[in-house]
Amino acid sequence: MKIVRSKDYTAARAWGAESIAAIPDATVRLHWTDQPYRWHVNDGDEVFAVMDGVVDMHYREGGAERMVTLQAGDIFHAADGDAHCAHPRGAARILVIERAGSA
């Protein structure tokens, strides 16, 4: 068993991660960041749960760039092939569940 207090988590660098579990063919990681991530497309589904902080999630839908503001407790699902880019407003802690080895 492992208990993680996400609000107390920090990392040595932006997007540093604490491995939570190894589920066959998937990873569950707690990220800490105060910097935007790059635009990317995962090679499988991704679940992105904001544990603490505020994150502006940019994504492309129907050829247009859109943005939604995620608060603590909000969850964003990016399906296989969905382009997206997270921009935290200050420090944020995010639980990410995705295919093992995904970008």
Rank of each mutant, 00 (worst) to 15 (best):
M1S: 14
K2M: 09
I3D: 10
R5V: 15
R5D: 14
S6M: 04
K7Y: 08
D8A: 11
Y9K: 09
Y9L: 13
A12C: 01
A12Y: 03
A14E: 03
A14T: 10
W15I: 01
A17D: 11
E18F: 08
E18M: 13
I20L: 15
I20A: 04
I20P: 00
I20R: 03
A21W: 06
I23L: 15
P24W: 09
D25Y: 03
A26Y: 13
T27F: 08
V28G: 04
R29C: 04
L30S: 07
L30F: 08
H31V: 06
T33H: 02
P36Q: 11
R38E: 11
R38G: 11
H40I: 12
D43C: 01
G44H: 06
G44K: 08
G44S: 15
G44R: 04
D45L: 07
D45E: 14
V47R: 08
F48L: 12
A49C: 10
A49Q: 12
V50W: 03
M51H: 09
V55C: 01
D56H: 06
M57P: 01
E61M: 06
E61D: 13
E61R: 10
G62F: 02
G62D: 09
G63V: 15
G63W: 09
A64Y: 04
A64T: 10
E65Q: 10
R66Q: 13
R66M: 07
M67E: 13
V68M: 05
D74R: 02
D74M: 05
I75R: 02
I75V: 15
F76L: 08
F76V: 07
A78F: 03
A79L: 02
D80T: 10
D80M: 09
G81A: 08
G81N: 04
D82C: 10
A83E: 13
C85N: 11
H87Q: 09
H87F: 10
P88Q: 07
R93S: 00
L95Y: 06
I97W: 01
E98I: 02
R99E: 08
A100R: 12
G101H: 04
S102T: 04
